[in-house]
Simulated scan of single mutants.
Amino acid sequence: MTNRVASCSCGQLRVTCEGEPVRISICHCLECQKRTGSVFAAQARFPREGLTMEGRSTQWTRRGDSGESATFHFCPMCGSTVYWEPHGLPGFVSIAVGTYADPGFPPPHVSVYEERQHPWALRAHQLPLEHEF
Protein backbone atom coordinates (compact mmCIF):
# COMPACT_ATOMS: atom_id res chain seq x y z
CA MET A 1 0.00 0.00 0.00
CA THR A 2 1.22 3.50 -0.85
CA ASN A 3 2.10 5.86 1.99
CA ARG A 4 2.77 9.54 1.36
CA VAL A 5 3.72 12.29 3.79
CA ALA A 6 2.55 15.88 3.38
CA SER A 7 4.10 18.60 5.51
CA CYS A 8 4.32 22.32 6.00
CA SER A 9 7.46 24.26 5.08
CA CYS A 10 9.08 23.88 8.51
CA GLY A 11 8.01 20.22 8.93
CA GLN A 12 6.14 20.76 12.19
CA LEU A 13 2.65 19.90 10.77
CA ARG A 14 2.51 16.58 8.90
CA VAL A 15 -0.10 14.24 7.46
CA THR A 16 0.72 10.63 6.60
CA CYS A 17 -1.66 9.32 3.94
CA GLU A 18 -2.25 5.61 3.52
CA GLY A 19 -3.53 4.53 0.13
CA GLU A 20 -4.39 6.47 -2.98
CA PRO A 21 -6.46 9.66 -3.07
CA VAL A 22 -10.07 9.30 -4.17
CA ARG A 23 -9.85 12.54 -6.16
CA ILE A 24 -7.11 14.89 -7.32
CA SER A 25 -8.29 18.23 -8.60
CA ILE A 26 -7.38 21.79 -9.35
CA CYS A 27 -9.61 24.68 -8.35
CA HIS A 28 -9.68 28.10 -9.97
CA CYS A 29 -12.13 29.69 -7.50
CA LEU A 30 -11.27 33.11 -6.16
CA GLU A 31 -11.02 31.86 -2.56
CA CYS A 32 -8.43 29.21 -3.52
CA GLN A 33 -6.50 31.86 -5.43
CA LYS A 34 -6.41 34.03 -2.30
CA ARG A 35 -5.54 31.08 -0.03
CA THR A 36 -2.62 29.88 -2.12
CA GLY A 37 -1.38 33.19 -3.50
CA SER A 38 -1.37 31.45 -6.88
CA VAL A 39 -3.82 31.38 -9.79
CA PHE A 40 -5.24 27.99 -8.82
CA ALA A 41 -4.98 25.35 -6.12
CA ALA A 42 -4.21 21.63 -6.45
CA GLN A 43 -5.59 19.22 -3.86
CA ALA A 44 -5.92 15.51 -3.20
CA ARG A 45 -8.91 14.12 -1.30
CA PHE A 46 -8.51 11.15 1.04
CA PRO A 47 -10.82 9.23 3.37
CA ARG A 48 -10.05 10.47 6.89
CA GLU A 49 -9.58 6.95 8.30
CA GLY A 50 -6.38 6.51 6.25
CA LEU A 51 -4.73 9.68 7.58
CA THR A 52 -2.51 10.40 10.57
CA MET A 53 -2.06 14.05 11.54
CA GLU A 54 0.95 15.13 13.62
CA GLY A 55 1.91 18.53 14.98
CA ARG A 56 0.00 21.63 15.92
CA SER A 57 -2.32 23.44 13.57
CA THR A 58 -4.24 26.67 13.65
CA GLN A 59 -7.71 26.38 12.15
CA TRP A 60 -9.75 28.81 10.14
CA THR A 61 -13.22 28.16 8.72
CA ARG A 62 -14.53 29.92 5.64
CA ARG A 63 -17.33 29.57 3.13
CA GLY A 64 -16.18 28.78 -0.39
CA ASP A 65 -17.53 29.83 -3.75
CA SER A 66 -19.80 26.75 -3.65
CA GLY A 67 -21.52 28.04 -0.49
CA GLU A 68 -20.12 25.15 1.57
CA SER A 69 -17.76 25.72 4.49
CA ALA A 70 -14.40 24.11 5.15
CA THR A 71 -12.01 24.24 8.08
CA PHE A 72 -8.42 24.83 7.02
CA HIS A 73 -5.45 23.63 9.09
CA PHE A 74 -2.24 25.57 8.74
CA CYS A 75 1.05 25.58 10.60
CA PRO A 76 1.23 28.24 13.34
CA MET A 77 5.02 28.44 12.82
CA CYS A 78 5.47 28.84 9.03
CA GLY A 79 1.88 29.52 7.91
CA SER A 80 1.61 26.75 5.29
CA THR A 81 -1.90 25.42 4.68
CA VAL A 82 -1.52 21.64 4.74
CA TYR A 83 -5.05 20.23 4.84
CA TRP A 84 -8.71 21.11 5.18
CA GLU A 85 -11.95 19.42 6.10
CA PRO A 86 -14.83 20.21 3.74
CA HIS A 87 -18.01 20.32 5.85
CA GLY A 88 -20.11 19.10 2.92
CA LEU A 89 -18.01 15.91 2.66
CA PRO A 90 -17.83 14.44 6.15
CA GLY A 91 -15.23 11.70 6.46
CA PHE A 92 -12.92 13.23 3.84
CA VAL A 93 -9.91 15.51 4.07
CA SER A 94 -8.31 17.52 1.28
CA ILE A 95 -4.55 17.97 1.27
CA ALA A 96 -2.64 20.58 -0.72
CA VAL A 97 -0.68 18.66 -3.38
CA GLY A 98 2.35 20.95 -3.03
CA THR A 99 2.81 19.85 0.59
CA TYR A 100 4.02 16.45 -0.67
CA ALA A 101 6.94 18.10 -2.48
CA ASP A 102 6.80 15.17 -4.90
CA PRO A 103 7.04 15.89 -8.66
CA GLY A 104 5.89 12.28 -9.21
CA PHE A 105 2.54 12.85 -7.48
CA PRO A 106 -0.34 11.77 -9.76
CA PRO A 107 -1.87 14.53 -11.90
CA PRO A 108 -5.32 16.02 -11.33
CA HIS A 109 -8.29 14.60 -13.23
CA VAL A 110 -10.80 17.29 -12.31
CA SER A 111 -10.72 21.06 -12.82
CA VAL A 112 -13.40 23.23 -11.19
CA TYR A 113 -14.45 26.89 -11.38
CA GLU A 114 -12.85 27.23 -14.78
CA GLU A 115 -14.94 30.35 -15.46
CA ARG A 116 -12.60 32.07 -12.97
CA GLN A 117 -9.45 30.61 -14.52
CA HIS A 118 -6.72 32.99 -15.63
CA PRO A 119 -6.60 32.54 -19.40
CA TRP A 120 -2.89 31.64 -19.35
CA ALA A 121 -2.93 29.41 -16.23
CA LEU A 122 -2.85 25.99 -17.89
CA ARG A 123 -0.48 26.91 -20.68
CA ALA A 124 2.63 26.91 -18.52
CA HIS A 125 3.85 23.69 -20.17
CA GLN A 126 4.10 25.61 -23.44
CA LEU A 127 6.61 28.12 -22.06
CA PRO A 128 10.24 27.70 -23.09
CA LEU A 129 12.48 26.31 -20.39
CA GLU A 130 14.67 28.92 -18.79
CA HIS A 131 17.96 27.54 -17.53
CA GLU A 132 19.41 30.80 -16.26
CA PHE A 133 17.92 33.24 -13.81
Rank of each mutant, 00 (worst) to 15 (best):
T2R: 07
H125E: 15
G98Q: 01
M53E: 14
L127Y: 10
C32W: 01
G55M: 08
S111I: 04
C29A: 03
V112H: 09
P128M: 00
P106G: 10
S80F: 14
I95W: 01
G64A: 15
T36H: 02
P107V: 10
Q117G: 03
H87E: 02
L122T: 07
P107Q: 15
F105I: 11
G104P: 05
E130D: 06
L89K: 15
T16F: 02
F72S: 05
E114H: 05
C8S: 06
L122E: 09
P128V: 01
Y83L: 06
A42M: 11
P106Q: 12
T99Y: 12
F105H: 07
R56H: 05
T52C: 11
G37N: 04
A41V: 00
L13Y: 00
M1Y: 08
F133W: 15
A6Q: 00
T61Q: 14
R123V: 10
C17G: 02
S38D: 05
E130R: 11
A41R: 04
R62Y: 11
R116M: 12
Y113V: 13
G37T: 01
R14A: 04
R35A: 12
L30D: 14
G50K: 02
V93F: 04
L13E: 00
F40P: 03
Q59L: 15
L129M: 10
W120A: 13
I26Y: 09
